[in-house]
Amino acid sequence: MMEPGLYHLLVIGALLFFTGIYGFFTRRNMISMLMSIELMLNSVNINFIAFNKYLWPDTLGGTFFTVFVIAIAAAEAAVALAIIINLYRSHQSINVEVAEEMKY
């Protein structure tokens, strides 16, 4: 049985991050786009914790950063959801394709 190490965690982090980016650009539903961004932020959290545990165990920077990232992600989601609700009132949809009045 192999013990999971730094590289496994970093690979998971990178995969999650790029899944998030892929999702952000392919999803058309705003809530799904928001979820993709959460994926990206959580991949960063995995990175921070992995680096903190395996490379720099005597510091606390990574752990603290993670706590702040979670808090900020919540704040960002709150504002984004408020904006999406307001957009739904005026456009009757939360598909990004409907918000295309302004171009070029």
């Binding site: 998030g20 980016i21 952000f24 960002e76 984004a80 904006i83």
Partner: peptide
Amino acid sequence: RKSSEAAMKMVMSSALASGIMLFGISLIY
């Protein structure tokens, strides 16, 4: 209508930008 569209574009792109930046910060750490 344009105002909510602008806000949506702003919040989405700035959230994406900060996600990308965070990944860079985690590498620096």
